[in-house]
């Protein structure tokens, strides 16, 4: 019984983190139409910005804030300098963001080395529920992730700017025609996406540790979840994050040797039989 409760709790905690990783990725695709293969690298760079700030002697909250604000600046910058000039050529954008991600790996590795580093936990302590011991840090991370996702949902659905973002995701030219400043909104979405990536990177760094090459794993997770849920669909991504998070936890608990294989096979099945994802638009 204990293991079932453990699976439920750990699966939920990891799912909320996965959802956070995927959210920024799917937002960029939905609104700006760009599949940003540097998203995992953004998360990794975010974690390393915090590690760098810590090395300069900053306090942990200040370092975390620095990472989030830093990525909120860097992500739109990358868009303007690298992606916007070739935006109308999907293959170039696709390969360009991939190559940019591997360049970022090397740059970070140059300064920090390629070994895994651990971001100190934001909250110390361990909570015991029955027989299950949960680090408070993970609970806090899950709570923060969920409140960010909830806040973002309210922002998109309830505010004027949010509605402009939605309009843009439906039809860019139409949004421009009714007077929505599309470029400014797109830059804002890139900033949000960068900040979300940095937060996700911080949590991943404090749970499992992070290394420059780890970004590929983060990207694969985001990519998998987003495709499984349907490109550009935020509810789909949340559902897919739960599916991936729970299936990995279950496999980890009961058949650890097949770890990582289960979710990949699941994804291959979905891609084969429902190429548009679980909640994706049919015309994908």
């Amino acid at each position: 019984m204990g293991s079932v409760i453990e699976v439920l709790i750990l699966g939920f905690l990891i799912s909320s983190l996965y959802a956070l990783i995927a959210l920024g990725f799917t937002m960029i695709f939905g609104v700006a139409g760009v599949l940003n293969l540097a998203h995992g690298a953004f998360a990794m760079v975010g974690a390393y910005l915090a590690l760098g700030a810590l090395e300069w002697g900053w306090s942990l909250p200040a370092a975390a804030l620095f990472a989030v604000v830093g990525m909120a600046f860097l992500a739109p910058l990358v868009y303007v300098l690298l992606i916007r000039p070739v935006e109308d050529r999907p293959i170039i954008v696709f390969l360009g963001t991939l190559l940019f991600a591997v360049v970022l790996e090397q740059i970070v590795g140059l300064f920090f080395g390629f070994n895994s580093r651990i971001v100190p936990p934001l909250v110390e302590g361990i909570l015991t529920v029955g027989e299950v011991r949960i680090p408070v840090n993970r609970l806090a991370a899950s709570a923060i992730a969920l409140s960010i996702i909830g806040g973002l949902w309210l922002f998109v659905n309830r505010t004027r700017v949010g509605k402009a973002i939605l309009a843009l995701s439906m039809e860019r030219r139409g949004a421009a025609l009714v007077g929505i400043p599309t470029q400014r909104i797109i830059l804002g979405v890139w900033a949000i996406s960068g900040a979300l990536a940095a937060i996700a990177g911080l949590f991943v760094g404090s749970f499992f540790g992070i290394s420059p090459l780890e970004e590929r794993l983060l990207l694969t997770i985001a990519f998998t979840i987003v495709i499984l849920g349907g490109l550009g669909s935020i509810p789909g991504s949340l559902g897919a994050a739960l599916i991936i998070g729970f299936s990995e936890t279950v496999v980890q608990q009961f058949a650890p040797e097949a770890r990582g294989l289960a979710s990949l096979l699941l994804l291959m099945l979905v891609l084969t039989f429902r190429p548009q994802g679980l909640l994706g638009r049919a015309a994908a």
């Binding site: 599949l35 999907p90 696709f94 694969t220 990519f223 998998t224 495709i227 490109l231 990582g260 294989l261 990949l264 096979l265 994804l267 291959m268 891609l271 084969t272 190429p275 994908a284």
Partner: peptide
């Protein structure tokens, strides 16, 4: 054959990882 663009690329990536 049923997949395009990013879906296809992910399929090849997943095949390699799996």
């Amino acid at each position: 054959l049923r997949l395009h663009g990013p879906y296809l690329s992910l399929m090849t990536l997943v095949a390699a990882l799996a």
